[in-house]
Amino acid sequence: MSMASTVCSQFRFDPARHGALAALVVILCFNLIVTPNFLHTQTLFVNISQVATIAIVAMGMTIVIATGGIDLSVGAIMALSGALAPLIFLSPFGLANPGLGLAAAIIIPILAALCCGIFNGVMVSYFNVQPIVATLIFFISGRGLAQVLTNGNLQTISNPSFSYLGTGKILGLPFQGWLVLAIALVLWWLVTRSMFGRQLLAVGGNERAARLSGIPVERVKIGAYVICAGLSGLAGLIVVAINSASDAARIGSLMELDAIAAAVVGGTLLQGGRAPIFGAILGAVIIQLVKYTLLANGVADEVALIAKAAIIIGAVYLQQGRRD
């Protein structure tokens, strides 16, 4: 009782902090009134499976941005891991040992993604390359590598176990939704409770002070890029599982922009020092819902891009507006 009353008395509407939540409510209300069949379970499932990949990558992006960096390579890493998976379980080894093949098809692509993350992190921390340039390397070469691996072919797959990643359901809700929730809880603990989280926010808040206080700045940064890349690899697998096909040219295309947008809408400061994990999910949901709203009401896809830009501008404006 007293807990509830203190929470209520502490709550004041602050556009910078609650703006995204308010926007979500507005979009939901708009859809309830305008969009046909919005309150249909099918609509919910479509949106959850679409939003899951954006949310997973956006959470990783949030961690990287918290160090004051940025990761442009997330979409390309998705493509790389998405291309590797079918190659592995369609290989002679994978066909001969279905069980081992499936495990390898999930573990190896994610390991490959983690290696990309180590590369990004080492470039940024030890070689002092600007994050935008360092991650541009995989942004360009990662997708190329994926297309070379697959000879540019579309690979179709029909492996029910693997497809569970994309189409499975737990308690009637899509598996990816639960996955997002689980990842969010782990990352939230990491950011707010763990040593690594404290160090991460300190590096992003004031790198020189962090170094002077004995924080291993380089390792923390590498950790952030590795987490982001690993989550991107996982997102790549989910996209392949949903589509039952892998097209290296399209998986994760423009994902870096969606992820950055979701992180910013969710309240991440681009200069670093803050990592709102649930904010990133909220941002991803808003971006997905706007896309869906326009699509369901017959507005062209291109226009959705403009709407997305408008959301980002609004979010950045609210961030800037914060002052005493």
Partner: peptide
């Protein structure tokens, strides 16, 4: 300002920064 405080962090987090290990 440049080498000491982590401006976004609380007094608590600033005090224990070097003590974390």
């Amino acid at each position: 300002k440049a080498d000491g405080i982590i401006p976004h962090m609380s007094v608590r987090e600033n005090i224990t920064l070097a003590l974390l290990p």
